[in-house]
């Protein structure tokens, strides 16, 4: 069960510099996100929203500052690979499906990292794809799927290891308005039904404003 008043992710004085320190992507960000929250992060290009998402998801390491997951320091108390495989599900703008694998196999990729000897991977993947309305598309390769279908496969993949946090980086960026609305409806539905924490990075105001909590980024900082 999720306690919506429990801090799940805590960010303290987070800084991220690139190019030998000449580019400051994040300049001292402090942030707390509670378990089960739905948070949208918006901002102009280069404002640091994707960098923040990458650090929250353990995809990258900060130049200074720290990220805590349930009071465990990322990269120290909890190793980043384990954090990504067990606790976080990623959804990307470009879908990032493996082109040589069928939809049902793509959903099993994260499970292969956690349960390599489990024989139920295919059953779990099939269930998730059915829930995404893709029962008839399971054996298709990514290039045989529409953009909306690909993103639904990516959502199923993100849910494969039953994470507690769903991170979506511009999940509707490559979709038309109809598919965008459907994907957002799905993500919000999943967040509510499973009580997951949902953090979406978006540049679309409609999506950002529809979230219960909206964080605006500018020049590597959270706008007050």
């Amino acid at each position: 069960m999720t306690n919506t008043h429990t801090p799940q992710l805590e960010v303290r004085a987070l800084q991220k510099h690139y190019e030998d320190g000449s580019i400051h992507a994040l300049c001292g960000v402090d942030l707390t996100i509670n378990a089960g929250e739905y948070v949208a992060i918006s901002g102009a290009s280069g404002s640091g929203k994707s960098t923040l998402l990458h650090l929250l998801g353990g995809l990258d390491t900060p130049t200074s500052g720290e990220v805590l997951y349930n009071n465990a320091l990322l990269g120290k108390t909890i190793d980043l690979d384990t954090y990504r495989s067990h606790h976080v599900g990623f959804i990307f703008q470009a879908f990032h499906l493996v082109p040589t694998l069928r939809a049902i196999e793509n959903v099993q990729v994260p499970m292969l990292a956690v349960h390599p000897n489990n024989c139920d991977r295919a059953d779990r993947a099939e269930t998730l794809l059915r829930e995404m309305g893709l029962a008839h598309r399971m054996d298709q390769y990514p290039n045989q799927l529409s953009a909306g279908e690909r993103q639904r496969v990516a959502i199923a993949r993100a849910l494969a290891n039953k994470p507690s946090i769903l991170l979506a980086d511009e999940p509707t960026g490559n979709l038309d308005s109809v598919n965008s609305a459907r994907i957002m409806e799905m993500l919000v539905g999943i967040q509510k039904s499973l009580g997951m924490t949902l953090i979406i990075v978006t540049h679309e105001n409609d999506i950002a404003n529809s979230a219960p909590r909206h964080i605006r980024m500018m020049d590597g900082k959270i706008e007050q």
Partner: peptide, 12 residues
């Protein structure tokens, strides 16, 4: 990029 995807999905 695919290896990046696998790493992002938690592959050690």
């Amino acid at each position: 990029r695919e290896i990046g995807i696998l790493r992002a999905l938690g592959w050690k």
